[in-house]
């Protein structure tokens, strides 16, 4: 699956479009990690646990979006945007959306 956050793909033309696709996920780390992050907060620096959590979540959200696009019969997603929300404290809520298209 080809993905881009631009509208046009140089050298290829869009033959069909299928509408909007999106992938979202809400994930959390277990309490031990949350507490470690709290301690780390005192000293500053990278919160490895959370970096990992966000990376994993983003990957999963993208995976879900791709799955949706595939089910719609597309072979590429253009104009991809990321967005987050914060409903649950201490959880990563990733949202990614774009337009499913078919490139020739």
């Amino acid at each position: 699956m080809f993905m881009t956050n631009t509208e046009i793909v140089p050298g290829r033309t869009i033959t069909q479009y299928h509408g909007m696709v999106s992938g979202s996920t809400v994930r959390a780390k277990h309490l031990g990690r949350d507490m470690m992050a709290g301690i780390k907060n005192i000293f500053g620096g990278e919160l490895k646990g959370y970096t990992e959590l966000l990376t994993e979540s983003r990957k999963e959200a993208i995976e879900r979006m791709i799955q949706q696009a595939r089910q719609m019969g597309a072979n590429a997603i253009i104009n991809v945007r990321f967005s987050t929300s914060s409903v649950a404290a201490g959880a990563a809520e990733l949202y990614v959306y774009g337009t499913a298209v078919t490139l020739n």
């Binding site: 069909q16 299928h18 509408g19 996920t25 799955q67 949706q68 089910q71 078919t102």
Partner: peptide
């Protein structure tokens, strides 16, 4: 061309 189709299942 617009090819409308809904995803088969809810992946989210």
């Amino acid at each position: 061309q617009y090819v409308p189709r809904l995803p088969d299942e809810n992946v989210n």
